[in-house]
């Protein structure tokens, strides 16, 4: 199968989606809240379903509102349940997002009878179909999904540029943020809203499950490579973008080698992200396995000198 303009659009859509996920994803990873991304990406489902019911169409704007509302509710409910129910955060999250996800699934299966909506698409996305749904901006024509993900990326970029100092402060030391007058609660819910909105923008292309890979894996990979926040954001974006191109390329090239037709691109994109993570894990300059091995061997060579001076001898 040869690479066509369709393939370029698919990879571009995946890339825009991955980069816009990498921004809130990096802060989730730094706050040790990766599972919150998982929870929110699942929990927005009922918000989407209700938006479908209300408008009867796959219109993006009501979906964003619905998702943002449910995303914030997820974060709120989790907080409440862990505080008043006296269960730990992880358990509270598990209760909230599975319940909301279930409600969403029930609603979507019901909605599927009335509106053009396939539960499979919601879960796994349909990035292969994105070039079939084009919109035009003046002389330019691009897939609607690319436009939606691109717009989300711009919003996320604007937020991280304007509030970089505040996001970093409240991620590193929320108590200090509060005493300095920067409400860590506000920034927490802002980040949760970003995650919810980004997830919705992404879900049409990559689905609500694969999107977790885009939120977390590039950020975790970047954290293996650098110990500075700004480079981390850039590397996470680059890893996300690369896994999108590599993923789609592998999806159309590898299965034919085994005599079968091409496979799902979004799945391959997540797989490619995992592959890049593995590479970083092995070859990262300081934290990588190779670097650690070399360091350990360096130490071994030095042992004879130090043991001669050991009081145990």
């Amino acid at each position: 199968m040869s690479w066509t303009i369709f393939d370029t659009w698919i990879a571009v859509t995946g890339m825009l989606c991955a980069i816009s996920c990498a921004i809130p994803g990096s802060f989730l990873v730094l706050r040790k809240m990766s599972m919150m991304g998982d929870a929110i990406s699942h929990a927005v489902l009922p918000g989407l379903a209700i938006a479908f019911f209300a408008t009867g169409a796959r219109d993006s704007f009501p979906m964003f509102i619905g998702a943002a509302v449910v995303g914030i509710l997820t974060a709120l409910f989790t907080q409440w349940i862990s505080r008043f129910g006296q269960v730990d955060r992880g358990a509270a999250m598990g209760i909230v997002f599975t319940t909301l996800f279930a409600i969403g699934l029930i609603l979507i299966v019901r909605a599927a009878d009335h509106v053009d909506l396939d539960p499979g698409c919601v879960l796994y996305g349909a990035i292969e179909l994105t070039p079939l749904d084009m919109v035009s901006f003046g002389p330019f024509e691009l897939p609607r999904a690319a436009a939606v993900n691109g717009a989300t990326l711009l919003v996320n970029l604007a937020i991280v540029i304007l509030l970089f100092k505040e996001l970093r402060l409240s991620s590193f030391d929320p108590a200090l943020a509060d005493t300095l007058g920067f409400s860590s609660g506000f920034i927490h819910y802002l980040l949760m809203t970003m995650v919810a909105v980004t997830t919705v923008a992404a879900f049409e292309s990559v689905g609500s499950i694969i999107v977790i890979a885009m939120l977390i894996v590039p950020a975790a990979t970047a954290l293996l490579i650098t110990r500075r926040l700004i480079p981390m954001l850039f590397i996470a974006a680059a890893v996300g973008a690369a896994s999108s191109w590599i993923g789609h390329f592998m999806a159309i090239r590898i299965p034919p080698l085994f005599g079968v037709s091409d496979t799902t691109s979004s799945g391959m994109m997540a797989f490619a992200a995992g592959l890049l993570f593995t590479l970083a894990w092995i070859f990262a300059p300081h934290e990588g396995l190779v670097a650690q091995f070399l360091r350990a061997r360096g130490k071994e060579n030095r042992i004879p000198e130090s043991t001669t001076q050991s009081p145990l001898r």
């Binding site: 304007l162 100092k165 970093r168 402060l169 991620s171 590193f172 030391d173 920067f182 926040l229 981390m232």
Partner: peptide, 28 residues
Amino acid sequence: SVDWDFPISALDVVAMGTYRRLGWFKKV
């Protein structure tokens, strides 16, 4: 109370003390 593996330099942590005077949006 904080994660010392956080990707930030010592100077950037110390500069957080100036944030109140800076207020929202303004850069260090």
